[in-house]
Simulated assay, not measured.
Amino acid sequence: MKYSMKEVSEKFNITPYTLRYYEREGLLPFVQRDNNGRRIYTDVDLGSIQLVNCMRATGMSIAYIKNYVSLTTKGKDTVDERRNIMLEQKEILKEEIKKYNDLLELVNMKLDYYDEKISRDELKEIITERNNKN
């Protein structure tokens, strides 16, 4: 299928400016144009955009992604190098996940503390009310 810039922007929730920027930076090197000069995106382009967005979301710099994309254009000889890039990014993500899991654990501990405190305070209030009735 073929997609317009507007359709791609909406599909990935990114601006047309971002798509033009990615293309200008060499992250989308094969985007075609129609007779009027408008960009036409293919399913392959959508896969590339999805990967670039994923890489950006995981903290990869534009330069790092550009290097990766450059390697993809060189064919099968760079598969090991590209795999290593993905392995490095996987380790970075695992570290980030661990960090957020640790933060979540701390937040849960505080919530447990507050839940216990609220329960104790409610219990005290009930006892106080009963004592006042007697």
Rank of each mutant, 00 (worst) to 15 (best):
M1L: 10
M1A: 11
Y3G: 03
Y3V: 09
S4F: 09
M5Q: 13
K6P: 01
K6L: 05
K6T: 12
S9T: 08
E10W: 06
K11P: 00
F12T: 02
N13A: 12
N13K: 14
T15W: 02
P16H: 06
L19K: 06
L19P: 00
R20N: 07
Y22F: 03
E23R: 04
E23A: 11
E25A: 07
G26H: 00
G26V: 07
P29I: 14
P29G: 09
F30V: 13
V31S: 02
V31N: 03
D34R: 09
D34I: 09
N36C: 03
N36P: 05
G37Y: 12
G37D: 03
G37P: 01
I40K: 06
I40M: 12
Y41W: 06
T42H: 05
T42S: 07
T42M: 01
D43T: 09
V44G: 14
D45G: 03
L46R: 10
G47W: 07
I49H: 03
Q50K: 11
Q50C: 11
L51Y: 08
L51V: 10
V52S: 04
V52F: 11
C54A: 11
M55S: 05
R56M: 04
R56T: 06
T58I: 08
G59L: 05
I62S: 07
I62K: 02
A63M: 03
Y64W: 13
Y64E: 11
I65H: 01
K66C: 06
K66Q: 14
N67V: 10
Y68K: 06
Y68I: 05
V69S: 00
S70H: 10
S70G: 03
L71K: 15
T72H: 08
T73N: 06
K74C: 04
K74Q: 15
G75D: 02
G75P: 00
D77P: 01
D77A: 11
T78W: 13
T78L: 06
D80N: 15
R82D: 01
R82V: 10
N84A: 08
N84E: 13
I85R: 06
I85Y: 08
I85Q: 07
I85T: 15
L87I: 05
Q89R: 10
Q89I: 10
K90M: 14
I92N: 14
L93N: 03
L93G: 04
K94N: 12
E95P: 01
E95N: 09
E96C: 15
E96K: 13
I97L: 05
K99A: 02
K99M: 07
K99R: 13
K99E: 12
Y100P: 00
N101W: 09
D102K: 15
D102G: 02
E105W: 07
V107F: 03
N108F: 15
M109R: 12
M109G: 08
K110D: 01
K110Y: 03
D112G: 04
Y114D: 02
Y114H: 02
D115V: 02
E116N: 04
K117S: 02
I118N: 06
R120P: 00
D121A: 15
I126H: 05
T128M: 07
T128Q: 05
R130Q: 13
N131S: 08
N132F: 11
N134E: 13
